Amino acid sequence: MAKVLVLYHSTYGHVEAMAQAMAEGARGVDGTTVDIKRVAETVPEELARKSGYKLDQEAPIAAVDDLPGYDAIVVGCGTRYGRMPAQMAAFLDQTGGLWAKGALNGKVGAAFTSTATQHGGQETTQFSIITNLLHLGLVIVGLPYSWQGQMTLDEITGGSPYGASTITGGQGQRMPSDNELDGARFQGRLVAETAKKLFG
């Protein structure tokens, strides 16, 4: 049985929705268990509330020591100037002890993200996640062109070979489209299938 963790940070709920779709795709693989957890919000609560953060997310807060218990770890977060936000970086920066022990070597990893605009740094943010996962020894699963949705010209859409993604709009007014959620489900399933082959 493969165990998959979808680990995310979501400010306004867009990445949370993508995380749920990613988990849905992974759960579609027989013999797979999936948990969704989030990293702690580091913005002070009063400021977060004034800024409209979605603080009522169901996913429990993850601990670094949770990670070795999974065969696959899918990391998702929004974009800050073309890289991962401080909240996710702060969490991953605490994994030095796991790195030193090789605790995550050979596990499966993947990345997903969101940006406000089409060219707001989705791929560089995914690479900032993937770089961390490679340093920790994970084997990366992207979103291959076998998912044809990323090639559509019929609508504006996220998604790249590096992972699923969504475009939120400058005011966060756009939630993930059906196509973007399908991309997340496809990648989640591929992660679970890969983990099952390696650990199932």
Rank of each mutant, 00 (worst) to 15 (best):
I140S: 06
D93I: 01
F112H: 04
N105V: 15
G13E: 08
S165Y: 03
M84I: 07
F199Q: 04
P44F: 00
G120K: 05
T168C: 09
F199R: 11
T124H: 10
S160Q: 00
V43T: 15
A100Q: 14
T117H: 11
K101E: 15
L138T: 12
V64G: 07
L98H: 00
W99L: 11
V34Y: 05
A19G: 08
G142W: 09
L153N: 13
G169E: 03
T11Q: 13
C77Y: 10
V139R: 14
G200L: 00
H9A: 10
M18R: 12
I156Q: 12
P68N: 10
K37E: 01
T124Q: 07
G78T: 06
V15S: 00
V15E: 03
R38A: 00
L104W: 00
D154L: 12
Q187Y: 01
R189H: 08
Q118I: 11
A110S: 15
T79S: 13
V29R: 02
G149L: 08
T152H: 14
Y70D: 11
H135Q: 13
D56P: 06
D178A: 14
Q57D: 02
C77V: 13
A111T: 07
Q150F: 02
T168G: 03
E45Y: 00
A63T: 13
Q122H: 12
A40G: 01
L67Q: 13
L190H: 07
T115Q: 08
N179K: 15
A63Q: 15
D178G: 09
G121N: 02
Q122W: 04
S165H: 05
A90S: 12
A90I: 02
G102K: 11
V74R: 03
Q173H: 04
L136I: 02
C77I: 03
G120I: 05
E24C: 09
G106F: 12
L55C: 03
G69L: 01
V141T: 07
T33E: 15
